[in-house]
C-alpha cells in the first residue's frame, strides 16, 4: 500500500477585497490596487491545510505550492512554507498577462503536468473573482476527475480518495480514483498558523528574481548556499505550452466595458436615533401598510 503522496496545492495571491476601504477607488474611479493589501486567498489556505493533513498522516508525502502571478506572489509560497509546505513553484511571465480563467487554467495545467503529482488540491474560488472555475478547468485540461466543494478528506489510499462535499442544502460523500483535482470549501478546517521554527528555517527562501535584485543580501547568500531555500520560478518556456493558449490571446472572454458603481440617488429621509423619530417612522409604515 502506498504511503507517500505527491501533492500540489494551487494558491493565489489576491487583493483583500473583503476589506475595501474608502480609498480603494481613485478619484478618477479606477481601482486603487495599492490601497488593497495582498493576501493568501482564504480558501487556498483551507486547501493547504487539507494537503498538510495528508502529509501528517503519511510522512514522506510532499506538498508543493504552485502559484501564478507577479514576482511578489512568491510571498504566498513562503507563507505556505512557514505553515508546512515543502516548497513551491511560481509561474511568472509576461506571456501569461491578461489571462482569463481558461488561459490561467491552461498554464497551471502545463506546470502541473511537469510536476506530475498524485493529486492537486485548490481552494474552491478566489475572492477577487469568485468564479470557482480554475480548479475544474485544470482538472479538465489534465483529463482528471474533479471533486469540488470538499469539506473533509475522509480516507485515502493508493487507489483513491473518499471525500465529504458540502453542498448548499446538504452533504455528499464521493469516492474518486487518483490522480484527481479537489477544490476545498471555506467550511473546511482552517489552516494551521505559521510555525516559528519553520519561519527561522525558511525566511530566506527566495525566487531567483528576488535573489538577483539584492545579490549582496544575507537572504541571497543563504539561498545560493541551500537548495531548500530556492523557490522555483518558471517562465512560460519552462512548461512547454502552446503559446496560442496563453495570456490575452488564449483568453476567449474579453472585457468590453468597465463601469464604476454609481448608485442611483434616491430622496432619502434621514432620522436620528430617538424614540420620537423612530416612533413616527413606524406609525408611517403601519399607515401605508408596509408593515402589518
Amino acid at each position: 500500500m502506498k504511503k507517500e503522496f505527491k501533492i500540489v496545492v494551487l494558491a493565489k495571491q489576491v487583493p483583500d477585497t473583503r476589506n475595501v476601504g474608502k480609498d480603494a477607488m481613485t478619484p478618477e474611479g479606477t481601482v486603487n490596487r495599492a490601497a488593497l493589501p495582498a493576501i493568501f486567498n482564504p480558501e487556498d489556505l483551507n486547501a493547504l491545510e487539507a494537503a498538510l493533513r495528508i502529509k501528517d498522516k503519511y510522512p514522506g508525502s510532499t506538498v508543493t505550492v504552485l502559484s501564478m502571478g507577479p514576482h511578489r506572489a512568491a510571498e504566498v509560497i513562503r507563507d505556505a512554507m512557514f505553515r508546512g509546505a515543502d516548497g513551491g513553484v511560481l509561474l511568472t511571465d509576461r506571456k501569461f498577462a491578461g489571462a482569463d480563467t481558461l488561459a490561467t487554467s491552461y498554464a497551471l495545467s502545463c506546470a502541473a503536468r511537469k510536476l506530475a503529482p498524485d493529486m492537486i488540491i485548490a481552494g474552491r474560488q478566489a475572492i477577487d473573482g469568485d468564479t470557482a472555475q480554475v480548479g475544474s478547468q485544470v482538472a479538465e485540461k489534465l483529463g482528471w476527475p474533479q471533486v469540488t466543494y470538499a469539506e473533509e478528506i475522509l480516507d485515502l489510499d493508493e487507489k483513491g480518495m473518499t471525500i465529504k462535499r458540502r453542498l448548499e442544502n446538504g452533504i455528499e460523500v464521493v469516492q474518486s480514483p487518483l490522480p484527481l483535482v479537489v477544490t476545498v470549501n471555506g467550511s473546511a478546517a482552517d489552516c494551521r498558523p505559521q510555525n516559528a521554527r519553520r519561519i527561522m528555517k525558511y525566511k530566506y527562501a527566495l525566487i531567483p528574481t528576488e535573489a538577483a535584485a539584492e545579490p549582496a543580501s544575507l537572504a541571497a547568500e543563504m539561498t545560493a548556499k541551500h537548495d531548500y531555500l530556492r523557490i522555483a520560478e518558471w517562465g512560460a518556456d519552462a512548461v512547454d505550452p502552446d503559446p496560442s493558449q496563453l495570456g490575452l490571446e488564449g483568453s476567449p472572454t474579453k472585457v468590453k466595458k468597465i463601469e464604476n458603481v454609481v448608485f442611483q440617488l434616491k430622496e432619502s429621509k434621514c432620522l436620528q436615533c430617538t424614540d420620537d423619530e423612530i416612533n413616527t417612522l413606524i406609525v408611517e409604515l403601519l399607515e401605508t401598510h408596509t408593515l402589518g
Binding site: L102, T131, A132, S136, Q146, T148, L167
Partner: peptide, 22 residues
C-alpha cells in the same frame, strides 16, 4: 448553483469557450 458552478467550467474548458460566472 453548486451543480452549475461545477459543470460550467469543465464544459467551457473542454469546448475552449469562455464562461462568465454569476
Amino acid at each position: 448553483t453548486p451543480v452549475g458552478r461545477d459543470l460550467g467550467p469543465r464544459v467551457s474548458s473542454a469546448m475552449h469557450s469562455g464562461l462568465t460566472a454569476d
